[in-house]
Amino acid sequence: MENNFQEKDNIIRSKSFDFSVRIVNLYKILYYERNEKVISKQLIRSGTSVGANIEEGIAAFSKKDFIFKLQISYKEAFESRYWLKLLFKTEYIKQSEFESLLFDVEEIIKIMTVILKSSKENQ
């Protein structure tokens, strides 16, 4: 399964992992420095779930399972985008932090859209 998606997989795998690292680092700042304890926990769950579900999808035993895991990851990316918007609008994160993370998650969403579309067409 992995060979069929190798080129796209490497891009989405590395971008989602880098996004997870950024989310973990933001969580530490929000939780310990900015005293935000609720939304930050939601964000770390959804933000790190993006890459985790991509990894599970890569290890899938069937194309159907691969698509299913990527669909979960796709939804988690949308949820992460929501939490980032909320954190920005409630002034827990600065505009520069927000715009940078928003760019990353939207890029991940675009890449996953292409992967899911081609995977479903080739199913």
Score class of each variant (00 low, 15 high):
Gly57Lys: 04
Tyr92Gln: 10
Glu56Met: 10
Tyr31Gly: 00
Asp104Lys: 11
Leu84Cys: 04
Gly51Ile: 05
Ile72Ser: 02
Met112Ala: 04
Gln123Lys: 13
Tyr74Lys: 07
Leu84His: 03
Lys120Ile: 12
Ile67Val: 14
Glu91Arg: 15
Glu106Ala: 02
Phe5Tyr: 01
Gln42Asn: 10
Glu55Asn: 14
Ile44Val: 14
Lys117Asn: 12
Trp83Val: 05
Val24Thr: 07
Ile54Tyr: 09
Ser46Tyr: 00
Arg34Lys: 14
Phe5Cys: 00
Arg45Asp: 07
Ser16Ala: 06
Glu107Lys: 13
Ser119Ile: 06
Ser20Ala: 13
Glu107Val: 05
Lys41Phe: 07
Thr48Val: 08
Leu43Gln: 01
Tyr31Val: 00
Val21Asn: 05
Thr48Met: 09
Glu36His: 02
Phe78Gln: 15
Lys63Gln: 14
Glu76Ile: 05
Val114Ala: 04
Gly51Arg: 02
Tyr31Thr: 00
Ser40Pro: 01
Leu86Val: 09
Val24Leu: 07
Lys89Ser: 11
Asp65His: 08
Ile67Tyr: 11
Lys64Asn: 11
Glu107Tyr: 03
Gln123Tyr: 04
Thr113Tyr: 15
Ala60Trp: 02
Tyr82Thr: 08
Phe5Met: 01
Glu7Gln: 13
Ile67Gly: 01
Lys64Asp: 12
Ile44Glu: 00
Gln95Arg: 15
Arg22Met: 06
Asp104Gln: 14
Lys110Glu: 08
Ile72Leu: 08
Phe88Arg: 10
Val105Arg: 01
Phe98Ile: 05
Ile111Gln: 02
Leu26Arg: 00
Lys75Ile: 09
Lys28Ser: 07
Gly51Lys: 04
Phe103Trp: 09
Ser62Val: 08
Leu102Trp: 13
Ile11Arg: 01
Lys110Phe: 15
Leu87Val: 06
Val50Lys: 03
Glu97Val: 04
Leu26Val: 02
Lys15Asn: 00
Ile93Ser: 00
Phe66Val: 05
Phe19Leu: 00
Lys37Ile: 02
Ser119His: 10
Ser119Thr: 07
Glu33Trp: 02
Ser73Ile: 03
